[in-house]
């Protein structure tokens, strides 16, 4: 039995939200494995940032890509071999700034992959700059007078972009997060899980999240209802905001990637 934790020394800060996320991912993968999924068929990608370190710690195959490109790599893998379950990890700087185009297009295409957003509201690994998801007023090394840009709201943005599974969870709620990730991977189509992840060094949001996070269990009846829940500020709603069916990309194009034999290719060229 493969140990899902590699021997690589873990260098996340003590108390980092990533530990809860890591535990949840392993729990979700374990559950998939218990159901008969082969670990060989689960593949991960990551970008660069604190989130990316999960690549070294999680003992499954994949690509530790460039900053922002996790979702582009993940889509290329899925198209080449649709039998694989592809999980793309991304940070909020990584996937909503430099890699935003890939994030939106993966959702637009309903690519059958799972995107787990480590949302810690800042660039942790590069010492605390504001990210596209940092709130107005966020004071980081690059915004000493406070961030003046409004943040994206990942849940509603991804709904608008076309994601067919959209959820939010919190690193301190491991059972909730593990189940959300499990369901996201099982979903056929583009799954997005926003994971609220406190950054103990630059954006410690434990207190805020512990106080305001409220899991809901019933799928909202409409997108309007989902948006209302996602945008609420007094309470931070956790759960699945949208779960719909739409033809995923590789089915829509009838997955034509099929290596022809040498003989078949020669025959075509001679004709």
């Amino acid at each position: 039995m493969r140990n899902l934790t590699s021997s690589k020394e873990n260098t996340w800060c003590v108390g980092c939200g990533n530990f809860g996320l890591f535990a949840s991912v392993k729990e979700a993968i374990q559950k998939l494995q218990d159901e008969g999924h082969n670990l060989q068929d689960i593949v991960m990608t990551s970008g660069i940032g604190c989130h990316g370190k999960i690549f070294d710690y999680l003992n499954i195959s994949g690509i530790y890509g460039l900053h922002g490109r996790s979702l582009a790599l993940a889509q290329g893998i899925k198209l080449a071999n649709p039998a694989l379950d592809v999980i793309a990890f991304g940070g909020d700087g990584d996937s909503f700034s430099e890699g935003l185009e890939h994030t939106l297009f993966a959702a637009k295409r309903n690519m059958d992959i799972t995107f787990i957003l480590h949302n810690n509201g800042n660039y942790g690994l590069t010492t605390g700059q504001a990210s596209p998801l940092s709130p107005v007023g966020f004071r980081g090394v690059s915004t000493p007078k406070g961030n003046v840009e409004i943040p994206f709201v990942p849940v509603t943005l991804m709904m608008e972009a076309g994601a067919t599974f959209v959820a939010r969870s919190y690193t301190a709620k491991i059972a909730h997060l593990a189940d959300t990730i499990y369901q996201a991977v099982k979903h056929r189509g583009f799954s997005f899980v926003e994971v609220l992840q406190p950054c103990v060094s630059y954006n410690n949001t434990y207190e805020l999240y512990n106080e305001r996070c409220r899991p809901f269990s019933e799928l909202p009846q409409s997108d309007e209802e989902a948006r209302r829940l996602a945008l609420a500020e007094d309470e931070i709603h956790l759960g699945i905001f949208r779960r719909t069916e739409r033809l995923c990309y590789h089915d829509a194009i009838n997955n034509p990637v099929e290596s022809l034999s040498r003989a078949q290719r020669s025959a075509f060229l001679q004709s």
Binding site: T45, I63, G65, A72, L73, G76, A80, N81, E101
Partner: peptide
């Protein structure tokens, strides 16, 4: 950017 990264993903697979 997407093209080359997707291609690398496909090569990986």
């Amino acid at each position: 950017l997407a093209a080359i990264n997707m291609a690398i993903g496909s090569v990986f697979a």
